[in-house]
């Protein structure tokens, strides 16, 4: 399969190829989604090596369960749900109660060349995640960092849409405050 052709294929087309017996086609899905799964793993485990093992575990689980993918959601949503459940179960198995470190789940250092907006956005998202249990903090990251809709986040995490909405709403409020664009009460149309 040429590079050009692989790029043109949708995830669902690649899935069909794998289910028809082309194992190597699975590498296209790994290439496309590896970094997102890895980032989720970093958010939970704070360790690159563990995140690597986690990423491998998630993709192998997805591969073995590929036949049960019903196509009701996007493949990426389905994969993130496997990743989220794997991470939560691993944490529960180890009985860890450490809070999520936002530094791990969010982009690294804010360099001098970062724009004011970007820096403030990162700080605001971090602030919104502070104090939340890891499973809920992930909701905010999935909204801002993965650009997922409330329903997709709900499907991945199992939290009700309203719970996710309220966390994201709080994060947006913080973001407005940080950017100095909060509402002005006396402002009327």
């Amino acid at each position: 399969m040429t590079e050009r052709r692989a790029e043109d294929l949708r995830d669902e087309d690649v899935l069909d190829l794998v289910l028809e017996g082309d194992r190597e086609a699975f590498s296209i899905l790994v290439l496309r989604h590896r970094s997102r799964v890895e980032r989720l793993g970093m958010g939970f485990f704070h360790d690159a090596e563990e995140a690597a093992d986690f990423t491998q575990d998630v993709f192998l689980k997805a591969y073995t369960a590929l036949g049960s993918f019903k196509g009701r959601s996007l493949f990426s949503t389905w994969l993130l749900r496997i990743a989220y459940n794997t991470a939560v179960n691993a944490k529960q198995r180890r009985r860890e109660s450490l809070p999520l470190d936002p530094d791990d789940i969010l982009p690294g250092d804010i360099g001098a060349d970062e724009t004011h907006e970007r820096g403030e956005t990162i700080r605001a998202v971090r602030a919104a995640m502070d104090g939340l249990p890891p499973r809920q903090a992930v909701c905010i990251e999935l909204f801002f960092g993965y650009s997922l809709k409330y329903a997709e986040i709900s499907e991945i995490t199992g939290f009700p849409v309203n719970t996710i909405k309220s966390h994201v709403f709080r994060a947006k409020k913080l973001l407005r405050e940080r950017l100095g664009i909060g509402p002005e009460v006396d402002d009327a149309l």
């Binding site: 590498s27 790994v30 290439l31 590896r34 970094s35 997102r36 890895e38 980032r39 690159a48 995140a51 690597a52 990423t55 491998q56 993709f59 192998l60 969010l106 982009p107 690294g108 970062e114 724009t115 907006e117 970007r118 403030e120 956005t121 990162i122 998202v125 801002f144 960092g145 650009s147 973001l175 950017l179």
Partner: peptide, 26 residues
């Protein structure tokens, strides 16, 4: 601000610490 945040996250994705090794292992 949201778009630039997404761009920052995507940039950190492509410069991930694990890279091709995991893909090969998988």
């Amino acid at each position: 601000a949201s778009a630039s945040y997404l761009a920052a996250v995507s940039a950190s994705d492509s410069a991930g610490p694990i890279g091709d090794l995991v893909e090969d292992r998988i």
